[in-house]
Design a protein around this nucleic acid. Structure first.
Length: 476
DNA sequence: TGAAATGTTGGGGCG
DNA sequence: ACGCCCCAACATTTC
């Protein structure tokens, strides 16, 4: 009995059903990763590739330590796996589903090539609940979050996650693979060192972060989560995207912490974080049911929205030189760390799609390349939500005022000063909108408008009016 | 998981 | 003392 376990975005040993089932059944296990970007319109971006490299390295080390090394191969997935089946005489192929359109196509190709030759054991550990299990009374997919969340809480049963296997039986004959470096996931220029330094990539690091957050952070989450200067969010998104922990493990950790502190259920404050986990779940389900939404608006009337061609504006937004400090701080945090606080993601996304009128796909593409947690479901969902064309979307007219948001959520300016050192000497009153400050204040802080820090790309009031006019144009 | 525009109210300055 | 106005504070509606 030999099982091939095909690893994808489930780069962990704990709470991994394909692996746990294979171990329980007995026999040899061949862990495999197949690198196959050809033809994938949403192949991982630069930041994701960096994370993937390091996460694979950790997984390979952990698998080797348990007795069956990771086999890395590249090429068309179906033929690579077929070759492995032939070489190992495997009886079963076990893997976790993914819900991106291109990944579902890969799964179909694999099934077509191998269903007659091996048993296919397909799990869905990337989600709390399989998409087919959650639907409205009419049998339709949910398109509004609140009823989705209520139903999810009824359907999902928190179970104790599978423990990681201690020992894996290798196949009788060593299976050849390629070295990880062959995949060339890392950039040649070395920009990735700064990004990697901000994280502890891999299953053990993910577990530590989850445990630390549940122990120390979750009770303050409701009060801190919207403050980008605070260390108030879990920062688990890249670990969840790559499957270094599962959402079930995350949910269980919260529930176990509640039980350990003698509560009957999860506290109201911790529920707020589980709710965020459910937004992730919702985004995955939406992409599953509406696979075109990585590229096309869910709301079809937005198909004729008059987006603005503004290459220069887009470039300023990407580089963090819009002249709006909260926008620029966020974009620089993204560039330097591969991550951005979610409150700031909403602000920068609103600025791009509404103040500049640039198509949400341009923003989604930039995030895709620069975020270490880039995830097709979450990214497409989030951008469509902001643009007003997605599921449970903010009404189009809900336009963020970057100055008010900045004053409200970074009142002391710690976040702005951290990412915009050229403004650090400004008094807090002037920090959120430097162009409004008296010249004497700017001079004293050594800020020359247009030289040390850009003047605003647009006037928000004017830009807002123009954005509302574009909406009326669409509706006309 | 908005913000601006508009409406309402009530305290206080002032003639 | 009274009416008038201003406007902050808050509420509602509108985008």
């Amino acid at each position: 009995m030999t099982t091939i376990v095909w690893f994808r975005r489930d780069l962990r040993l704990g709470d991994h059903r394909p692996l746990a089932n294979a171990v329980a059944r007995g026999g040899a296990i061949v862990p495999v990763y197949v690198h196959d970007d050809a033809g994938d319109p949403w192949a991982p971006g630069a930041a994701s590739r960096v994370w993937l490299h390091h996460s694979l390295a950790v997984l390979a080390r952990d698998l080797a330590a348990r007795g069956s090394p990771l086999v890395i191969r590249q090429g068309p997935t179906a033929s690579v796996l077929a070759a492995l089946v032939a070489a190992t005489g495997a009886d079963a192929l076990a893997f976790n589903r993914r819900h991106e359109p291109h990944e579902r196509a890969r799964e179909a190709a694999v099934a077509a090539a191998l269903a007659a030759r091996v048993a296919l054991e397909i799990s869905d550990d990337g989600l709390l609940v399989a998409p087919a299990r959650l639907h409205t009374r009419d049998g339709e997919p949910y398109r509004v979050f609140t009823p989705f969340w209520q139903r999810l809480r009824e359907v999902f049963v928190a179970a104790i996650p599978h423990a990681p296997p201690r020992r894996l039986t290798p196949p009788p004959r060593t299976v050849a693979g390629v070295p990880l470096d062959t995949l060339a996931l890392l950039p040649s220029t070395g920009w990735d060192a700064d990004v990697v330094a901000h994280w502890s990539i891999g299953e053990a690091g993910a577990r530590r972060r989850l445990d630390a957050f549940v122990a120390d952070g979750i009770e303050d989450y409701a009060a801190q989560r919207d403050l980008p200067a605070a260390d108030g969010v879990s920062r688990l998104s890249p670990h969840l995207h790559f499957g270094e922990i599962s959402p079930r493990q995350a949910w269980h950790a919260v529930a176990a912490q509640a039980a350990a502190s003698g509560r009957l259920g999860v506290s109201d404050r911790a529920i707020g974080w589980l709710r965020q986990l459910a937004w992730r779940e919702f985004a995955q389900h939406v992409l599953h049911h509406y696979p075109a939404t990585s590229d096309a608006p869910l709301r079809e009337d937005f198909g004729r929205f008059p987006w603005v061609e503004d290459a220069a504006g887009l470039a300023h937004w990407q580089r963090g030189t819009t002249g709006y400090p909260i926008v620029d701080a966020g974009m620089r945090e993204l560039w330097q760390t591969g991550w951005m606080h979610n409150r700031v993601r909403m602000i920068v996304a609103s600025f791009l799609t509404k103040d500049l009128g640039v198509h949400w796909r341009a923003g989604a593409a930039w995030f895709w390349d620069t975020l270490v947690d880039a995830d097709l479901g979450n990214n497409s969902f989030g951008w469509q939500w902001t643009a007003g064309c997605g599921a449970d979307a903010a009404p189009y007219f809900r336009i963020f005022n970057p100055i008010l948001q900045s004053r409200k959520f970074d009142p002391d300016g710690h976040y702005l000063r951290r990412w915009l050192p050229e403004l650090a000497s400004l008094p807090t009153t002037a920090l959120h909108a430097p162009w409004q400050a008296p010249p004497t204040v700017l001079t004293a802080a050594k800020v020359r408008p247009g030289i040390d820090y850009p003047v605003p790309l647009v006037d928000h009031g004017t830009a807002r009016t123009a954005a509302l006019a574009r909406l009326r144009q669409m509706q006309a």
